[in-house]
Each structure stands twice: as C-alpha cells, then as structure tokens.
C-alpha cells in the first residue's frame, strides 16, 4: 500500500487547496445569483410573454438543458474566439455555469409561480397593484416558498458542478487538486482532499439551507401556529431559565 498520511494532512490545509475551495465558493455563489436572474427572466418570458418572446425563452431552456455543461463551457471558452468573442477563464466559467443554471431554474421558478393560489392575483389586482407590484410584492414572495427547497438543492449541485470548469483551466478545487497531484504524484491523497473539501462545503450549505427554508416557511408552517404572544412568553421563560 502506498498511502501517505503526511501528504494527506499537508494537502488538507495546503494553500493551493484553500484557494481552490474559496474559488469554488465564490464561483458557485456568483453563478447561482446570475443564474437565478436569468431563470426569473426566462420564466417570466415563458409565462407572460407574447409568442415570439415565449419561443425565445423555450429555445434557451431547451438548448441549455439539452446539452452537456462541459460542451457549453468549452464552446464559450475555446469556440467563441473563432467568432471574435474572447472571454477570459473566469468570465467563461461564470457565463457557462450561469446560463446552464438559469435554464434549470427557469422551470423551477415557473412551477413556483404557478403554485401560488389564483386568488392571490385577484386580491392583489383588487387593491390596485400593477403587474410589477403584484409580482414583486405578492406572487414572487409566495412562489419563493415553493422555490427555496429545490433552489437549495440546485446550489448543492452547483458547488460540485463548478469542478467541470477545471477543463477550461479555472483554478478552483478540482483544478488545484490536479496541479497538486502532479507535483509529487500523490494522486489519491490530492483528490481525496479535494473530495473532503467538497463534502465540507456541501455540509455547511446543508446547515444554511435548513435555516433559510425554516425562515421562508415561517408564515405558513407549524411554527406559525404558535401565536406571537405565546412565543414571547416562551422566550421570556427561556431567558429566565438561563439566568437562574
């Protein structure tokens, strides 16, 4: 057997891996936010646009859900320059991941909007809200409740999907593990450490996800069944118990 614990522990906190993990985090967050924006726009276009706009949205969703993200990234980074469009590695990675994510989120967001009771649209129109006000104040906040859990799962996926950007030499966890593996040829140790870092990131996200879901569930869920007065009493009681 040729497994080296010293290398393993050294890699675990190696600067290259830490930088890679950090890159994975911000790349995921930025791509997710942009993807969310694209997804909302695409969902709106598909639901409320005229025929042409609807077809544009459907074409986008069809295209990016129908092709591997790996091909999308490679085309953006190495193919587009042929058309005179030159993007650097970071731009290409973010664009590819966001476009791909947006296509998936569009469907999730559309389902979320459709899950909002039809009476909510009536009620918001009856108090005189414009389309934008209805969307912004009433429909989207309620759609959020349905959207948040799958959105969280998508972000979990995004943390791992960013590893594909290593093929266009984006220096995130996967790519940095490759580089590390080539220095001492400690391949198993290097990739194991990368795997552990992904596990750490995904686990931290799971904890955050639970809290976010609880927050958006509050007006609807069983927690809401406790009246605010009762909750205050409860908090007071807990405080008192702490002081005693």
């Amino acid at each position: 057997m040729n497994w080296s614990w010293p290398f393993f522990f050294d890699y675990l906190t190696n600067g290259l891996m830490l930088r890679g993990a950090w890159t994975t985090i911000w790349l995921s967050v930025i791509s997710m936010i942009l993807g969310l924006g694209l997804g909302i726009v695409a969902a709106m276009m598909k639901m409320y646009g005229n025929t042409v706009i609807r077809y544009i949205a459907e074409f986008y969703i069809w295209l990016f859900r129908g092709t591997p993200i790996l091909i999308q990234l490679v085309i953006i980074y190495t193919g587009l320059p042929q058309l005179g469009i030159r993007l650097n590695v970071i731009e290409s990675a973010i664009l590819g991941l966001a476009l791909n994510e947006g296509a998936y989120l569009a469907e999730i967001i559309r389902a979320g909007i459709m899950s909002v009771d039809k009476g909510q649209e009536d009620a918001s129109r009856a108090v005189g809200m414009t389309w934008r006000e209805r969307m912004y104040l009433v429909i989207l906040p309620q759609a959020t409740r349905t959207i948040i859990p799958p959105l969280g799962n998508q972000f979990n996926g995004m943390l791992k999907t960013t590893s594909l950007a290593s093929v266009i030499s984006m220096e995130e966890l996967m790519r940095n593990a490759q580089m590390l593996a080539q220095i001492e040829f400690r391949v198993l140790e290097a990739y194991s450490v990368a795997a552990i870092w992904y596990l750490i990131l995904v686990s931290i996200w799971s904890v955050i996800q639970v809290r976010i879901e609880a927050h958006y569930e509050k007006p609807f869920g069983p927690a809401a069944a406790v009246s605010p007065e009762a909750k205050k009493e409860l908090e007071k009681a807990i405080d008192k118990a702490g002081q005693a």
Binding site: G119, Q120, D122, A123, A126, V138, P141, Q142, P219, F220
Partner: peptide, 10 residues
C-alpha cells in the same frame, strides 16, 4: 372575496 385571499406571507 368568498375565499378571503389574504396575503399569507405577511
């Protein structure tokens, strides 16, 4: 409305 249609999220 018959079904109240209050905004449940606020």
């Amino acid at each position: 409305f018959q079904s109240f249609n209050l905004f449940p999220h606020v």
